[in-house]
Write a protein that binds this DNA or RNA. Structure first.
Length: 117
DNA sequence: CAGGTGACCTTAA
DNA sequence: GTTAAGGCCACCT
């Protein structure tokens, strides 16, 4: 019997986030959709908060549907996220990035093949 | 069990 | 371009 490595919803979310490429961003809602959890954007934020730091997920590439950083402006995590985005040559103005320019558009076929069973 | 909360989203002003 | 309201759902009091 194989050890149960079935993907939990949270694991799925971590997996999707890990695939966002450098220099691109993705909204919480989109991550939820891609993880097979439509309408569960808030679950994505919880999953990120719960993610072990050893995973080194690119959590800073996840923003809200308006292209804005969802942490309170000027808060510590807000500033860190902005710095991380800028370090990838992403332009951030008033805590917002231009989605038309930076939104991740994954190839769905490739994505499906990368999914854990 | 009931109510509050939040790293959200869509819609309608 | 903005904000406000309603919806959402796992977690915590």
């Amino acid at each position: 019997m194989q050890p149960s490595n079935k993907a939990s919803p949270m694991t799925q979310i971590w997996h999707i986030v890990s695939m966002i490429p450098e220099g691109k961003v993705c909204s919480y809602g989109k991550v939820a959709d891609l993880a097979g959890l439509p309408g569960r954007a808030r679950y994505v934020s919880r999953a990120l908060k719960a993610a072990p730091s050893e995973l080194a997920l690119p959590w800073h590439r996840v923003i809200n549907s308006q292209g804005k950083i969802s942490f309170a402006e000027h808060s510590e995590p807000f500033i860190e996220q902005m710095q991380r985005l800028r370090s990838e040559a992403i332009i951030v103005n008033r805590g917002r990035v231009k989605l038309a320019e930076y939104e991740w558009r994954p190839d769905l076929a490739t994505l499906v093949l990368s999914m854990p069973f």
